[in-house]
Design a protein around this nucleic acid. Structure first.
Lengths: 230, 230
DNA sequence: CTCGTATAATGAGTCTGACTCATTTTAAAT
DNA sequence: ATTTAAAATGAGTCAGACTCATTATACGAG
């Protein structure tokens, strides 16, 4: 009987998971390079050093494989988001942290984000991992309300759409103009979402860039997560 | 020699355009029902009462056909938006009109909007018709600035992403929850975009629904445009 | 170590559906 | 009625997703 000790290095199950992970890695690479339609399952199999039929032992079809790639991406993003947030900070600060992390991440991995749309064929249910990710925002807001930092009747659901909708469209605009992360996007978004004391739209102007080192923190988190597996 | 008078009813060119329009109609119907991948060119041809090869005389390939459908949709939307706006009204009022028209339209034709994403394969240039549509917003804002209704340094480009990003994500949320047009979405969006006098986020609450008849106006415009062709 | 069995992997073959193109049909001009 | 160019047709080609009969591997029992 083999030692089923706590640190058995090569169980059957581990081998399977490793292989699945290899296939997902290959799929992510090929999908992001070639797009969903351009990617051939044969190429993915080849990249994973596996026969084409093997891919279908792990994923029902090409769509399912895409869902795997996209799901893993959002799951990692959730982990990174939680790491990027200072748990003691105020709701507004946390929102700012999440906003920067989010914008930075989707810019950095724009292709995978785009693939997300291919993963929801019709009005089928969204990917669970996306819903999970979105809850990070909801928790921040709810805590802010509970603590009295935000009004009791704050429409969290609607503000969620403002938050993620704005950031995603801003990311597209930035990509289109071939610009990189722009601090002012998050700053302006926050200022309109939370409101400020001086009323009119005049407040929506650039503030000085700050916390440049936060970017570095984010980058290292990204890298860690990339190699983290699950 | 046939009379090439001003009102010849059945020129060769007219016949071609009619046929192209028939094919686009068929494509729109089949695409919206089955999605891009689920749609077969054979079915589209059949629906248009045309041989499969004929489709390829008008459109290079399936993608191109999709671009045709989506492009026509946004072109119509531009016309409708311009019709929905009172030219003498203030910038804020016009924004509200555009916001309602936009949210209502993309809810009503959600499937076509979703197809838009399939029409931009990679980071290729966006559809021209989408850019055209977006300019309606830009013109409203620019006029507001010129007239002094909005601050000189209003970041129009960023607010455009707030506006359309929020509305699109809100529409998705509404669809997901199987709700229909929600007045408060636009009201709240406007209140945060333009700012209000009482500072904090508390202002983001529901106001009374009003102008229910605007909805009917919108619907009739929709219908007119649908049958308008070009 | 060797066998037996279940699990995993393989890749040649099937099949669907986008796209082509040689042929036929239509229509306008003479 | 005839010519000719434009338009339409649909059978045929082909790429690529997916299947499945066969083969390889792992592992426990004797």
């Amino acid at each position: 009987m083999p030692a089923s000790g706590p640190e058995a290095p090569n169980t059957s199950r581990q081998r399977l998971e490793a292989r699945e992970s290899t296939i997902l890695d290959a799929a992510e690479q090929v999908f992001t390079r070639a797009g969903f339609d351009g990617a051939k399952v044969a190429t993915i199999a080849q990249t994973a050093a596996v026969a084409e039929g093997t891919v279908y032992l792990y994923y029902r079809n090409k769509q399912d494989l895409l869902a795997g790639v996209v799901g893993r991406f959002w799951a990692r993003l959730t982990l990174g988001a939680e790491a990027a947030i200072t748990s003691e900070a105020s709701a507004v600060t946390q929102l700012e942290q999440l906003g920067r992390y989010h914008l930075n991440s989707i810019l950095q991995q724009f292709e995978v984000v785009s693939l997300t749309y291919r993963a929801r064929p019709q009005q089928e249910q969204d990917l669970d991992q996306v819903r999970e990710y979105v809850r990070v925002f909801d928790r921040i807001m709810q805590r802010g309300v509970d603590r009295g930092e935000l009004p009791k009747d704050t429409p969290i659901g609607q503000l969620r759409d403002v938050f993620f909708g704005t950031l995603e469209f801003s990311a597209r605009t930035l990509k289109l103009r071939e610009r990189s992360y722009d601090h002012s996007v998050v700053t302006n978004l926050l200022s309109i979402m939370v409101g400020s004391t001086d009323g009119a739209a005049g407040k929506l102007k650039d503030k000085e860039p700050r916390n440049q080192d936060l970017m570095n923190t984010l980058k290292s988190i990204q890298k860690q997560l990339k190699t983290l597996g699950d």
